[in-house]
Nucleic acid binder design. Sequence first.
RNA 1: UGGGCUAUAGCCAAGCGGUAAGGCAACGGACUUUGACUCCGUCAUGCGCAGGUUCAAAUCCUGCUAGCCCAGCCA
Length: 552
Amino acid sequence: MEENSNFIKTIIKEDLESGKRNKVITRFPPEPNGYLHIGHAKSIIINFGLADEFNGTTNLRFDDTNPLKEDQEYVDSIKEDVKWLGYEWENLFYASNYFEEMYERAVLLIKKGKAYVDDLTQEQIREYRGTLTEPGKESPFRNRSIEENLNLFEQMRKGEFENGAKVLRAKIDMSSPNINLRDPVIYRVSHATHHNTGDTWCIYPMYAFAHPLEDAIEDVTHSLCTTEFEDQRPLYDWVVRECDMASTPQQIEFGRLNISNTVMSKRKLKQLVDEGFVDGWDDPRLPTISGLRRKGYTPEAIREFVIAAGVSKGSGTVDAQMLEHFVREDLKLKAPRTMGVLKPLKVVITNYPEDQVEWLDAEVNPENPEMGVRQIPFSREIYIEQEDFMEDPPKKYFRLFPGNEVRLKHAYFIKCEEFIKDEAGNVVELRCTYDPETKSGSGFTGRKVKGTLHWVDAKSALPAEFRLYEPLILESDEKNEEVIEGKTFLDYVNENSLEIVQGFIEPNMKDAKPQDKFQFFRHGYFNVDEKHTSKSKLVFNRSVSLKSSFKL
RNA sequence: UGGGCUAUAGCCAAGCGGUAAGGCAACGGACUUUGACUCCGUCAUGCGCAGGUUCAAAUCCUGCUAGCCCAGCCA
């Protein structure tokens, strides 16, 4: 969070200077009901980053107040993702461990005449709540005696009522223009097994009541959340105050992160997974932390991106290219260079000795010489990229075409003498000649060529699979113009978001392991896929392509 | 249309009464054994609109307009 200024940082700084606070404690409070995505990463980075900057601490707290939706599977994945992003929590907490205290605070509210048990059905409660423009009306059960409320609430806890039969409501103001203050439900009956507390409870607190208590219990100073909770802030403060909490956390809201060409809500992500548009929560096309990890994005890149995008109350959409920029930026000095041919075209170098193999020196990363040198074999038959040859090229095409000479990276100049087509008219083989004097590293300056191609030695190359990704969601003009009847985001899913090709890589890649990252020359950065890679074949996910100003 | 919030370049975003940071993208050019990287340069006489206060306004005031959020016993 170092360099950039933002409004939350300003608030914290002032709180510390004015003496309002003498420490900073934040928390990252996910509900364990799904996988984390890059929007959560923003929250993690803000909460941990800000606390860090002011020598404070951050807790990881599972906001597990709804047993119907939560599961241990999610708490495990969330812990893994937070760690992977590079953060260490001060404490690991569960909101469900505070259920007893929350219950006591609810009893306190009842005793103060600030809460009551309501028998209205769910539908009735909705009707009584009023609308955005009309005030609500009070429930006929609103003025029960404190004794009766106390008794009823205890019976709720004891399991004497069915799901939905009764709720506990805060008694605030049914005519408030802020709907959140129209006697919000703070406890509901739910006979369900909780992943942490088992069958101990059959009543569970609602977020609006539980969250401020959780923050206060943990002595959180700055409770940072997204803007959709802004309307809840008066209620948040009301709960802290009326429950006589010793600590007074302050809720501050920031704008959610949106990124172009993708979706960022658990609901939509789940839909894409459930309906088979992708192959799981960790599909590299998804903005989930596990998906980005599998795609080859790094924690550093994600962090730099989030920091660069900034923190404000606005709700804009950041260009996905900005994220990609930080991935390239981070991998530039880290990823070894290597050559891989995605769509092979055989080239026979006719004047090269039949059984000769040369081992050529190649720097592992020209921008980071410390990474050393590797050896690559070169012989009479190689593969180049199909798109690096054109029979009849346009102007300024400086790759291979009949009569043209190019450089083979780390090797020699070769000149295209002839090309062979199959009966369908596809070019299937090139016949070239090489010039021994032009060997890389020899200092040859006799003539220059405009193009440098990557290649692999045909005999020793290893087969490999490459998975190339395009944006999952297509941004359409329609989407921004008139609303098309019945269309949802699923209608904008890109059917060509995944392309799988079979190619070849340098033989020295044989020991690459899942999550190893490389830059394939002229193609981009790739990550060894952990799911599909087998003993017999490496599978690479393209993390991000290289920028290119080349256009045909 | 009740309430809350937000409007600064194509996108994100600083700025807090003293004369518009930065990043992404884009576009020129140099360099180049990655059409990459790097480097150099260009990119808001303008801060949603209209008024007002002031020597001075993106910053203060008034009035509009547009966008986002809220009517779960979800979080």
